[in-house]
Design a protein around this nucleic acid. Structure first.
Length: 686
DNA sequence: TTAAGCTTTCTTTTT
DNA sequence: GAAAGCTTAA
């Protein structure tokens, strides 16, 4: 028998060895890997987050300054989770680490005055969310006469683009998606259009003209969209080697989580930093969980990592501590249908449970929802906590029927899909007030505010903006007779009231006391507009109150807005209620569920067209991606996995009821690996 | 000419 | 269940 030796902490030494306690052999080697380039391939449930957080802790224990560690994660949720786990390991030092999404980190860096100015921005630049960006693209399209407005009126732009058969109006969302993908994949527009946007082929010059106008508008507004945060960061490093080297010296240790979800732009940023600096780079990921192709993610970044970094150390974490052997067997069988990628067979570390995944067909969506609710209620009665259960789906829309059912049955739930808190119209309205005060050139925010006023439509808003935006201080110009003259006569009363309201909000000093400013908006004429314009005004007013509560934690508007846009969560979120008891059922898209786990997981609406998504299957590589999404879904379950699908479904709510096909992801799995449930209804007495 | 109201269409996933 | 498009009213 081997002798047991327990290492004791040496007096006065940092207890970094203690940091590695509780890790298995490979995990420990990975966490304590020497400097240089390291790749950690980590299957679901294999302790990936543990390893990466322990590695950071270990580095700090080795004497690396926390503020010289850059840890990028892919989603806001993952970033928050990571920092929380890190805090419990290293305490306050965790807050010194540069941990966050690429966008959060870019924002922090580019706010530095010298960087912002080197790029031609002021450091108080606004951030445009997806909707703002789309509005501005639409604006650019209209100005070029390429939109719906431009076609009927022949007075503008006709000759410039007139060389060819222009085709119909260009759809802002398509143009925006193509431009974004081109930037994120570092690919020329022609190739992107050819591969992913055939409907734009032959109109590349028009799209490029839109891109130029859009870029100019963003510049004039001192605003960056999500893509700009990354693009400008990269541009800074390319054009200013001095700035690049300073950053590279600052970040001596780079860690990239969810490498398979990074896109080319992100990977170039990281590798530029690594090449110019100490070259210490640790990448963590799992090619089988790459589910962000639509955002330009490319799992080749992970697959080809060893080629790009010859001699890098590779660690494979293949023991799954999360799920039962039955669930692991099921997930292994699913992912083997994907041809590409590192072959992967996970081994469960847990004892057999003799409970196979369950597949249940119901006759329609209502019964599917009834079934899920009933099984949840039974589980709760049997002693399972509601917080240990989640229902996952491919599309947010798939959850609507279930939500109604949960409400009638009084089951508490939290939805983690759909609109985010800050994306709700009334929240954006309030933020627009604050935005124009902090950055008076913010065209998008101005337009939004003006369009709120009855009697002012797109044309009037544009005229007012043409008057105020080119002036030195648009805020001051707004109160002049000139601005008043540009407003339509019938709207002048409202306009004057708005000007006065905005002055009130300005007096509340939004830049330094955002909470006061939120309350000033609440006291202004906006409240009346809200009641007129939106449904459920009481709820919306409460949301704004909630925004005020959140804002009270900030002494700078910039940081509040950045946190909302870059770190803010879905409605009902942790940001708003950090100490939320979390004893609610979770409803979530698979994408939002990534990296999380529950004891009991339902995956619903497993039918062709929904999961896999109908559009995805016709795109090259789309089906494999959908299967990876399925893989992510089923690997969230620790103890019980229940898959449901309806036989009949009416598409789009009022459409005809059609017969569905069970998802191929279920059909293709060995029938011995799961159990089928036969669902029948009680006979109801009349 | 512009705004507002009504109808129709289509709905992936996220920073 | 929202955004784009069309129609009507001012």
């Amino acid at each position: 028998m081997a002798r047991r030796i327990t290492l004791r902490k040496a007096a006065g030494r940092s207890d970094w060895e203690a940091m590695l306690v509780g890790l298995n052999e490979v995990q420990r080697l990975a966490a304590a890997a020497p400097d240089g380039v390291n790749l950690i391939l980590a299957g679901p449930g294999s302790g990936k987050t543990r390893v990466i957080t322990h590695r950071v802790a270990w580095l700090i224990g080795q004497g690396v300054a926390p503020e010289s560690i850059l840890l990028t994660t892919f989603t806001r949720r993952a970033a928050r989770e990571m920092v929380a786990r890190l805090s419990s390991l290293v305490g306050p030092a965790a807050d010194q680490v540069w941990a966050g999404t690429f966008h959060q980190i870019a924002n922090r860096l580019l706010r530095r005055r010298e960087f912002a100015e080197a790029l031609g921005y002021q450091s108080n630049f606004s951030i445009l969310d997806a909707e703002d960006a789309l509005d501005l693209v639409a604006q650019a399209i209209d100005e070029l006469g390429l939109g719906t407005r431009g076609r009927s009126s022949t007075r503008r732009g006709g000759s410039e683009s007139g060389c060819g058969e222009a085709g119909g109006p260009l759809k802002p969302s398509t143009v925006q998606a193509a431009l974004s993908l081109a930037l994120n994949t570092r690919t020329g527009l022609p190739r992107i259009v050819e591969e992913r946007f055939p409907e734009l082929s032959g109109r590349i010059e028009q799209v490029e003209a839109i891109a130029r106008t859009y870029a100019a508008k963003k510049r004039a507004a001192n605003a960056m969209d999500y893509d700009d945060l990354l693009v400008q960061w990269m541009r800074l490093m390319e054009q200013r080697p001095d700035a690049r080297d300073r950053m590279a010296r600052e970040f001596t240790h780079l860690l990239v989580d969810e490498m398979q979800d990074t896109n080319t732009l992100q990977i170039e940023i990281v590798e530029t930093l690594a090449a110019a600096g100490a070259g210490n780079l640790t990448a963590v990921g799992d090619d089988a969980q790459s589910i962000y192709r639509f955002r330009g993610a490319n799992y080749d970044n992970l697959l080809k990592f060893p080629e790009r970094h010859p001699g890098c150390r590779v660690f494979r974490l293949e023991i799954n501590y999360r799920s039962t052997p039955e669930i692991v067997a099921f997930t292994n069988d699913s992912i083997r249908h994907n041809v590409e990628g590192f072959p992967k067979t996970l081994i469960s570390a847990r004892p057999a449970s003799h409970l196979k995944p369950l597949a249940a067909a119901t006759s329609n969506a209502y019964e599917e929802s009834d079934l899920i609710c009933q099984l949840i209620q039974e589980a709760v009665e049997a002693g399972r906590r509601l917080g240990e259960i989640a229902v996952l789906y491919r599309n947010h829309h798939d959850s609507i029927v279930l939500q109604g059912d949960l409400v009638t049955r009084g089951l508490k739930y939290t939805v983690r899909s759909g609109l985010r808190f800050f994306e709700q119209a009334h929240i954006k309205d309030v933020l627009a007030h604050l935005r124009v005060l902090s950055n008076p050139r913010d065209e998008t925010a101005w337009r939004r505010l003006l369009l709120l006023l009855p009697g002012i439509g797109p044309a009037a808003a544009s005229r007012i903006l043409e008057t105020i935006l080119p002036t030195a201080n648009p805020l001051d110009t707004l109160a002049t007779a000139e601005a008043m003259a540009s407003a339509p006569p019938r709207a002048r009363g409202r306009f004057a009231a708005f000007v006065a309201d905005l002055a009130q909000v300005r007096a509340a000093d939004p830049g330094n006391r955002p909470a006061e400013a939120v309350h000033a908006v609440l006291k202004s004429g906006y409240t009346e507009i809200l009641k007129q314009k939106y449904e459920h005004p009481e709820q919306r007013l409460k949301d704004i109150e909630q925004l005020g509560v959140l804002a009270a934690r900030y002494d700078a508007l910039d940081r509040l807005v950045a946190d909302l846009l870059l770190a803010g969560d879905v409605y009902g979120m942790d940001t708003l209620e950090p100490d939320e008891p979390a004893e609610t059922l979770v409803l979530s898209t698979v994408h939002q569920a990534k990296g999380l786990e529950w004891s009991m997981v339902f995956v619903m609406r497993l039918i062709e067209e929904s999961f896999p998504n109908a559009r995805a299957v016709i795109e090259p590589g789309g089906l494999d991606e959908e299967r990876r999404i399925f893989y992510v879904a089923i690997t969230r379950a620790k103890d019980e996995l229940i898959l449901t699908y309806p036989h009949l479904l009416s598409r789009g709510g009022r459409g005809p009821v059609v017969l569905t096909k069970p998802s191929r992801f279920l059909q293709e799995i060995d029938v011995n690996l799961y159990e089928r449930a036969i669902v029948s209804r009680d006979v109801e007495p009349f």
